[in-house]
Nucleic acid binder design. Structure first.
Lengths: 155, 155
DNA sequence: TAATTCTTGACTAGTTTTGTCAAGAAATAC
DNA sequence: GTATTTCTTGACAAAACTAGTCAAGAATTA
C-alpha cells in the first residue's frame, strides 16, 4: 500500500493529456516542462500507461500522446494498480496462532484487507472525467458501523 | 501515504498485548518470538507506542507491557499516525496553471486529498476492540456518487 | 534524408525501510 | 545491596526502493 510520485505523475500526465485533447497531441516535453517534471522520468510512466491501454502515442514530428479511452472510462484504481502495483495488505507472520481469531485467520489481516478494499473501492469510483470536472471533494464516506457481535467477543 | 512493517507490527503488538491482558504483562521477547519479529526492532515500535500513551511499560523481572487505554479507546488512525506519520497527499508542482480547475487549485490535489481523507475516516472508526472481536470485514463503503455538475464540465 | 518524437533498457545517487548493536537505567527477587 | 531481568536510548548499517539519468534506437513526417 503505497503512493509514490509515479502514481501522482501518472494522474497529472493524464490530466494534461485530457486537457489538450481538443487542440492536438501533447508531447512528453510539454507535460514535463509545464509540470516541471523530468521528461525522461515521465517517459517511463507514459510508456507504462501506453502499454496498458490508457493512452496512445504517435511518433515523429508533431507527434505526442492522446487518450486511448474516454476520460470517463479511465478509472483511477486501474491507473494506480498499473503504476504502483496492487494495493496489498499483509498481516502477521503466521508462525503462531496467538493472534488468530474465530476464523483461524490472523485478526490483523482483516484490518489491512478491509483497508485495501476501502482504498480500491474509493478509487474504482473515480474516473479521469471526475477529476477534470472537479467532482471529487466530499465523496469519502465513513465505514459501516460495527455491530456488537457477542458471539465473536474475546474476553 | 504509506504503510510499512512498522505500522503492521504496531497493530500486531497491540493485539498480542491485549490478548494477554488478563494473564499479566507481556514481554517484548514473547511478542517477538511468537510473531517471529526482531525483538530489537519491536523495541523501537513499542517505545514509540509508550511515548504516545497507548501502552505502559514495567521494568525489572516479570516486567513487560500492558495497554494504557481500554481497547475500545485505541483507535487505528491514531496508532498509524504516530507510527507512520500523517497520511499526506501531494499533488502537482504548482509551477503552472494548466492543471488548475475553477478553484485555482490543481485538479489532482482533490483526488489525493480526498483519498487521504477516506483512509483516515476509515481508520478512525476502527478500534483495537473491533480487531479483537473480528468486527472489521465488510465495513468499507463506496464513495458518495458524483453528480453531473454541468457548470464545472470541461470540453 | 533529416529532424522530431517516442521506445527501451541499463545505470546510479539518494532516501527509506528494516533491522542490529551496545551501553545504560529502573525495578524486583533474593 | 547485589544480581537479574527487562525496558530505554541512540548510534550504526545493510538492503530495498524511489527518483531520475543516459544512450542507442525505431518510427514517422516534412
Amino acid at each position: 500500500m503505497k503512493l509514490t510520485t509515479k502514481g501522482r505523475y501518472a494522474v497529472l500526465a493524464l490530466t494534461e493529456i485530457a486537457l489538450s485533447e481538443d487542440k492536438n497531441l501533447i508531447k512528453i516535453s510539454e507535460i514535463a516542462k509545464s509540470q516541471n517534471i523530468s521528461s525522461t522520468y515521465l517517459e517511463q510512466i507514459l510508456s507504462n500507461l501506453k502499454k496498458n491501454g490508457f493512452v496512445k502515442a504517435v511518433r515523429g514530428p508533431n507527434g505526442g500522446y492522446k487518450l486511448a479511452l474516454k476520460a470517463e472510462n479511465i478509472i483511477m484504481s486501474d491507473v494506480i494498480e498499473v503504476i504502483e502495483g496492487k494495493i496489498e495488505a499483509k498481516g502477521c507472520s503466521h508462525k503462531n496462532v496467538s493472534c488468530t481469531g474465530i476464523s483461524g485467520k490472523c485478526l490483523n489481516h482483516d484490518l489491512w484487507d478491509e483497508l485495501g478494499k476501502q482504498i480500491d473501492l474509493f478509487l474504482s469510483h473515480i474516473s479521469l472525467k471526475d477529476i477534470l470536472e472537479g467532482n471529487i471533494l466530499g465523496r469519502s464516506r465513513a465505514p459501516i458501523i460495527a455491530e456488537n457481535c457477542d458471539k465473536m467477543t474475546i474476553n
